[in-house]
Amino acid sequence: MKTQPKARTHLGIKTFLFGVLVSCATPYAVAETPAKQDLQPVSAFADIKNEVTRSQSIFVEMGKVIQHPRCVNCHPKGDSPLQGMLMQPHQPPVMRGPGGTGMPGMQCKTCHLSENVDVVAQAADIKSIPGDPAWHLAPTSMAWEGKSLSDICAQIKDKKRNGGKTLQELKHHMSKDTLVGWGWEPGEGRIPAPGSQEAFGQLYVAWVASGAHCPK
C-alpha cells in the first residue's frame, strides 16, 4: 500500500531500452480487467510522407508496448521489480542482485520458472505465476520507469545504455527474444502487451528503416 503516484500516472512517459519486455508480476490485488489494446501495423503509417514524422509516429506506436506495465515492471528505476497493471512494488519484496536475477536465497527463479504456471484454486486475482527461462530484471542503465517516450527512444539508440548493441543487433531482441515475447503471453489473469511480438518486431524494423527518429 505504498504510494507511488509517478508510476501510476505516467504510463505515457516511460522508457524503453534494450531489453526485456517483462513484468515480473505476481499481480497485486487489483484484477486486470481493461481490454487488450491493439497495435497498428506498419502499413498504417505508410501515408505519412515525411520520413522523420513517420519514424517518430511508428515509435509512438511502439510506445504502447514499451510503456505497457508488462514491460516497465521489469525495467524499474530502483532495485526492485514492479507488479501488476498498477505497477506496485513487487510482493514479496525482492532485490535485483547481480545480473538482475535476484539475491542468494531470494532469486527470480525461486518463484519464476521456465514458463507460466497456472495457480489452482487460490487467490481469484492470481491465476498464474509468470515464467521464462531467462526471467530477470533489466539493468538499471535500461530503466524505463518514470521516463518519457522520447527519453526511452534516445536510451534505446545509445549503445552505452542498450547493452552495446547496434540497432540491427537489437532486431532479434525485439522480435524474437522469448522473455520479450512473454509480454504478449503473460499467463492467465494478466493483460498482454498490445498487438503481437511479430507486429512489434515489424514496427521496430520499419522504425529503424525510417531513420530511427525519436519523438519529441
Binding site: Y28, A29, Q91, P92, A123, A124
Partner: peptide, 15 residues
C-alpha cells in the same frame, strides 16, 4: 471480501 491471501493482506516481513 476484497483480500484473499498474503499478497493483499500483508504480513510484516523481516526487513
Amino acid at each position: 471480501i476484497k483480500q484473499s491471501n498474503f499478497h493483499d493482506y500483508r504480513s510484516l516481513r523481516i526487513g
